[in-house]
Simulated scan of single mutants.
Amino acid sequence: MPGDVILRVENLNYSIGRNQILKNISFEINRGEFVGLIGPNGAGKSTLIRAIIGELEGFQGKVEVKGKIGYLPQQNNFERDFPITVRDTVAMGLYKNKGPFKFFNKADWKKVRNLLEMVGVAELSDRRIGVLSGGEYQRVMLARALATDPEILILDEPEAGIDEMGKTSFYKLLNELKKEIELTLLMVSHDIGLVFDACDRIMCLNKTLHCHKSTQEVSPEDLRVIFSPDFDLLIRGKDHLHKEHEL
């Protein structure tokens, strides 16, 4: 529903000793939005995500989530080395709903099959996760994150380890899921070009929130402020923005 706020952050501050990691962060995300969170290394992006998903203690301010959260963390090589199949990996996402000491039933395995079909890797069900490509692995982990039936899905650099074609395909899948299952998405990314192609709104973070705008409203100067002095290295994002403003 347009205007229905699913995530609200108010006056969020977080410091470690004298080092302020996040300063006066306030924003809202509505149901059904696909929001990209961008910023340089050390900008506080992962810390902000930890606060939202409930893994950060000691911050000041308020985080209010009106719905179930799903979380897709950065790729973890240890997980890929673990001798487990794609099917069992996705089933692990059901543990939170089932509780301890409960076995999977036919309905659970049907849900796993449906999730694998939803993300386009059903044919990989019996394959070990260690042999998957980066794009295949990320789709499997996406299926696992969706197993809890989240209303808002938070993704931390999901494009890491995926080639350019795989990134485009993965972002297309996210937009399809947004429409099909009415999913709200908040995604941390370093790929400026794809973020502007895929997302509805962009949040620019560098310890404080410099902007929270639609993709059409974010200017090259917005990026220059948060990425300076490394702005000139972001050729792809800069060129993308110039093309947008020339249309």
Rank of each mutant, 00 (worst) to 15 (best):
P73G: 00
V188E: 02
L241H: 07
H210Q: 00
S169E: 11
K243R: 09
E151M: 06
N77A: 15
G39V: 09
D200G: 01
L223I: 09
A147P: 07
F101R: 08
K45F: 02
L94R: 13
G17C: 04
K98H: 12
L177P: 02
I152F: 01
G70Y: 05
P2A: 13
I192L: 06
V140K: 00
V63N: 02
K213V: 12
K179Q: 12
V131D: 14
F34I: 05
R224S: 15
S133I: 07
I152D: 00
E176F: 12
K111I: 01
R87H: 09
S169A: 11
R236T: 11
G93P: 04
E176R: 15
H190K: 04
D222I: 03
V112F: 01
F227S: 01
K179Y: 05
G237M: 06
R50E: 05
E182H: 07
L209D: 04
N76S: 06
K238S: 13
S125G: 06
P83S: 13
V195E: 04
L234G: 11
G135A: 04
R8M: 15
D88L: 03
S15L: 11
T47R: 02
L155C: 06
G3V: 08
E10M: 14
C204K: 00
L48T: 04
M92D: 11
V225H: 00
A145R: 06
E157Q: 07
R144S: 10
S26N: 05
K102P: 13
I84S: 06
N24K: 10
V218R: 02
S133E: 02
M165F: 15
Q216W: 13
D149A: 10
D232R: 08
A107Q: 10
T208S: 15
N97F: 15
P158E: 05
E244M: 14
I181T: 05
N175D: 11
I235C: 14
N175G: 07
G166P: 00
L22V: 01
E10Q: 15
G54I: 03
D222W: 00
V131N: 10
M1N: 14
L153N: 00
G161T: 06
R87T: 09
L233Y: 13
A43M: 00
H240E: 12
P2L: 12
A43L: 03
L94F: 11
G130V: 07
Y14R: 01
R31S: 04
L174S: 00
C204R: 06
I6Y: 03
I52F: 00
L72K: 02
Y95V: 08
V121I: 11
R50I: 04
P100L: 13
I226A: 03
K66P: 10
I202A: 06
